[in-house]
């Protein structure tokens, strides 16, 4: 236990342990707009990394590159030291990277079970949907994450905002072994729901996965994250270990008044 803590502390200071995911010199242009300019990012095992910045700073673009939605125009992506290309959302998922988008990516008219297994249902005889096993797995996942949803048969449009959020996060945790990316997980949530979601994020780390979380809410960031990377105008302007910084400094980095 103590050694574990020491190791972590050591890594925090020297960053000597090898990152599970590393982005180097990433550039992304949309027409003439430089969304990202020479941005690097490194994510260590068992870490909750926060990505902050003002609107248009490039946070979403950066995670969409990791999620396989966008391809970088320049730069390289390394996973456990090996250079890789993430060509599609499917490729990202195959690398066991799960992304929870701000808009949650739930299909309203499908039920809870179908949403958990959206796009990759469990099958029997190779092709046919194995509903029974999916229901069993869903019950298992929800129980493990202490998410309470009244009925699994409910189309998810009938769920509350918090339940939907929990479902999307739960899906990511259930599928991911390595990296979970969360885009504004606490936006549009009530107080109680926010508390639950933050607890869920900490739970991801306990399950042995690394987390990248985007949020505008610095209080939430400081509550859950280990390290904070600040973007401004498509550039990385700083990386701070949470225990060695404060909200004030981060705000100054975000606004560029430092």
């Amino acid at each position: 236990m103590v050694t574990n803590k020491l190791l972590k502390a050591g890594r925090d200071i020297t960053s000597k342990s090898e990152p599970i995911l590393e982005l180097r010199g990433i550039c992304k242009y949309f027409g003439g707009v430089h969304a990202l300019e020479d941005v690097g990012l490194e994510l260590y095992p068992d870490e909750i990394l926060a990505l902050v910045g003002d609107n248009g700073a490039g946070k979403s673009t950066l995670i969409k590159i990791i999620a396989g939605v966008y391809q970088p125009d320049k730069g390289e992506v390394l996973m456990e030291g090996k250079e890789i290309e993430i060509r599609s959302p499917r490729a990202s998922m195959d690398l066991r990277i799960e992304t929870v988008y701000q808009e949650l990516a739930l299909v309203d008219k499908l039920d809870v079970v179908e949403n958990i297994f959206l796009g990759r249902p469990l099958t029997k005889f190779r092709w046919f949907v194995n509903r029974k096993r999916m229901v069993a797995e869903t019950v298992d996942i929800l129980k493990r994450l202490k998410i309470s949803i009244p009925s699994l048969k409910e189309p998810v449009q009938n769920l509350s905002g918090g339940q939907r959020q929990a479902l999307a996060v739960g899906r990511a945790i259930a599928w991911s072994g390595r990296i979970v990316i969360l885009d504004e997980p606490t936006a549009a949530l009530g107080v109680e729901e926010t508390r639950k979601t933050l607890a869920l994020i900490k739970q991801i780390k306990e399950q042995g996965a690394s987390v990248i979380v985007i949020s505008h809410n610095l209080r939430h960031i400081f509550e859950v994250s280990d390290r904070i990377i600040v973007l401004r105008g498509g550039r990385r302007v700083g990386s701070r270990i949470k225990s060695k910084t404060n909200i004030d400094e981060i705000v100054k980095l975000i606004t560029g008044s430092l």
Partner: peptide, 12 residues
């Protein structure tokens, strides 16, 4: 129902 969601979850 939700093309964007489907695509985000890896459906072509």
């Amino acid at each position: 129902d939700n093309k964007e969601a489907a695509r985000a979850m890896g459906i072509n």
